[in-house]
Design a binder for these strands. Structure first.
Lengths: 345, 345
DNA sequence: GATATTTTTGAATGCGTATGCATTGTTTGC
DNA sequence: GCAAACAATGCATACGCATTCAAAAATATC
């Protein structure tokens, strides 16, 4: 009863409303046993005092913080901005808060995880970086579920949701084959990321099945960024002994955009007239007029939903789902950078 | 002493290390009175138990959460992605956490603020949306500082940091005048945002001082987005009775990019040969080959630093600085979309 | 070597809320 | 009309840590 100067607490509200502190707590806890009349009395008093329940204190007793951690790398790729936006929107709708961590590309996320643990988050979503098995088990030991978004760590206990990258690579290869491309250049992303590796794998396999020779497929590294792909392209084509390929696969859209600009604006190579090009992701930026990129769509909303489903934030008592590897299928989007093959009619 | 099954607490660590719980707390609190020897003993025990201090519980007693809320609108504008990234990086360096809220463009941020208050954040950074004076005072009453980033709410008690938008508008007008432009089109952003209005104001004033007639300045609305500006441009130029201006001012870079693509790819108008163009912000995307946009740079890092300075998270006892309106000066960046005027030599 | 001083330590308490338990008030069933 | 079931309420306590206060240990002073 010594609420003197500081923040207003549930006791203050209780005093004004003429009820006990418990009643105040119950008034703000949906589904708890309280008469509608007293609830109104409490809410009225709370309004008068500008009272807002202290979630920190409440987390302490409920052991639920309603906070979800989102660990992001590579914000230079708009794809992840859209992913973040989607998660943020969905979680806000559910009345949950999003704690953001940005991790430099290629850096360990362990440090971020440690901070996350301190805040007793209800779940962790990881869209970047490596994750040590030690961290996975630290989370799981505490009952904190963790889901890898568009990442896959073989042998890890952590669950993950990803697009079927291999199938996507295959689909794009198929499109190029149908359009008659014989020689290929692949602009890869972060070589440590399975995402990039899987796409390349599916792509290559399908090409080889389609009769393309290994020697007609070249790979260069584009650093997962527009700028990286742009300069890698120029560097590659500037080398004297290089033969111009028929088709280029940018392992993500932002790199494909960089490749396209390098080709058309610096090297005088027209897309798709001189050379076909495809990306991966289907980010809105790739749909814009200068690009109108043929690509493979990752269904972000669906992937986000699956991720949240695995987290099952609503059922904290249900055991954590370990080692799930949910693969979501995407779909090829035909636009202008790969000529649509003739109808067989 | 009844730590049975659940999370490991400071009591568990204390027991293993053979010290009191107070000692454990002190071992993790920099600057507190503890012998180095016992500290090591505690840290060793903590490591063995995978103990991580519970920040939620600690916030309850210290009344500091080490969480800063960042309220974002319009993530479709890459400028704000870079802003978010800068804040995130800086705050992480300081060992603080970032709670993200995304608010639909034009929507009230009051709802987000309410959530923020529940989590007893140490400060609020608002980069979007309107803010009611009621919310400002609710924050201030609780001792939570709030800073508007690139927003200005006249008569508000909330402090703000912004680029000198009016000066920026003037500088761009000056560049156009020097390049000899006589008639103008302005593609504006969100009409309720002072940011956009101020830029237009400075721009117009300087033009009029430079002898341009009001009737030679037209405004259209570009919705602060690439797509909005793109289609607004096409719509505008498609109308029969419209005279082609000498110069276009896109009130931010992303809109200028949309305008440029519409002009060159849809309307067959070349920049800068047929028409000059400038943006505002200097986002990295505008530096890319297809655009190479002349623009006015907002010094993000400096603005971020100023914002954090006003928040003065390190000195929670210092009173909140109210009603500050810190204006940071930017600088004109000449690139390819406005011809550099002849030297007077 | 004895006292004054400083450093280190532990016991106890508070932070603001949720909730088990007991109590009171109200409704239902027969 | 009385017992039984139920709904609503308050009391007391726990959540995990930081911190005050007093006691203990280590160190300095003469």
């Amino acid at each position: 009863m010594k609420r003197s100067s500081t923040r207003t607490t549930s006791f203050d509200v209780a005093a004004l409303a003429g009820v006990s502190q418990s009643a105040v707590s119950r008034a703000f806890t949906p589904g708890s046993s309280i008469a509608e009349e007293t609830r109104q009395k409490v809410l009225e008093a709370a309004r008068k005092l500008n009272y807002v329940p202290n979630s920190i204190a409440s987390s302490l007793t409920t052991k639920r913080s309603n906070i979800v951690a989102l660990i992001l790398g590579n914000l230079a790729n708009p794809f992840y901005v859209h992913v973040m936006h989607a998660f943020s929107r969905k979680l806000q709708e559910q009345g949950r808060q999003v704690l953001i961590f940005t991790v430099d590309a290629g850096a360990e996320s362990d440090d971020a995880i440690l901070h996350v643990l301190k805040y007793q988050v209800d779940g962790v979503i990881l869209t970047s970086a490596q994750l040590s098995t030690r961290m996975t088990s630290m989370c799981h030991d505490r009952g904190i579920p963790i889901v890898l978004f568009n990442r896959y760590i073989p042998g890890s206990d952590a669950s993950g949701v990803r697009c079927d990258n291999t199938a996507g690579g295959r689909a794009l290869a198929e499109a190029f084959l149908a359009a008659g491309a014989k020689s290929y250049l692949i602009v890869t992303g972060d070589p440590t990321a399975t995402t990039s590796a899987d796409r390349v794998l599916g792509f290559m396999n399908r090409l080889i099945e389609g009769g393309i020779k290994r020697s007609d497929i070249t790979q260069i590294e584009g650093n997962s960024s527009y700028e990286g792909a742009f300069s890698a392209t120029i560097r590659h084509f500037s080398s004297a002994d290089v033969k111009r390929p028929d088709a280029i696969f940018g392992v993500n859209d932002i790199m494909a955009m960089g490749v396209m600009d390098a080709l058309q604006l610096r090297l005088g190579i027209k897309v798709p007239d001189d050379l076909m090009l495809a990306g991966f992701d289907d980010i809105p930026e790739g749909r814009r007029a200068p690009y109108h990129l043929t690509t493979f769509r990752q269904p972000i909303d669906q992937m986000v939903n699956e991720t949240l489903a695995i987290l099952h934030l609503d059922e904290p008592t249900r055991p954590i789902e370990r080692g799930i590897d949910r693969r979501i299928s995407g779909r090829l989007i035909w636009r202008s950078t790969v000529p649509v093959p003739q109808d067989n009619g």
